[in-house]
Amino acid sequence: MFEIFASLGEALALIGGADPALAGIVVLSLELSLAAAVAGAAIGLPLGALIAVGRFPGRRTLIVTLNALLGLPSVVVGLVVYLLLSRAGPLGSLGILFTPAAIVVAQTLLVAPIVAALARQVAEDAWREYEEQLTSLGVSRLRAVPTILWDARFSLLTVVLAGFGRAASEVGAVMIVGGNIDGVTRVMTTAIALETSKGDLPLALALGAILILVVLAVNAGVFAIREWSARRHG
């Protein structure tokens, strides 16, 4: 217990010290996780809404698969992306293994199913409410997808945040495809793993506390925006 309090003190000292290396890691973590959340949302939101609104063969199978993908082990995703991006792999010529882009690719693959599965539920609820009215107005199911996404935007913001949280907390895949290269692909989680490896548990815990604070700040900010606009729009 004492160690945890000591770590919190160390976390505060680290923040107060404004260590540029640490700041770089925090900023990189935020950038990559946000990029993955945005990319995951760009894939997951339309996909989730399409599944919610659409009627096509295999829809149920797709829903079950999607829900199962929520538990996708990140190490597996990391390995698959590694093998794809490896020079010996099909996408090796891109040469992005062990770069931030590789991290975003892996995180996006982890985020997209979460966003799609949660967005499907949100969109399905919205569709239940809107179906009759939109059909009456002559809106096709395909045309309803962007309409529903836009109308459920406040709820979907939370969904995207969940995706961001997964990306920011991700370590297994990021370690494999990023390589935890100092100053290039070292993010908060892999830095924590490294310090844990070095047995510097207080520093690792302090970094963990900072990661939680950063994620908390992002969540609080988005929550405030969401509350404000939701109140305005009803």
Binding site: E132, Q133, S136, T147, W150, R153, H233
Partner: peptide, 13 residues
């Protein structure tokens, strides 16, 4: 043709 329902469904705009 057009239709108006018992409970109007308005979009968030």
């Amino acid at each position: 043709q057009a239709m108006v329902f018992q409970r109007p469904v308005m979009l968030r705009r």
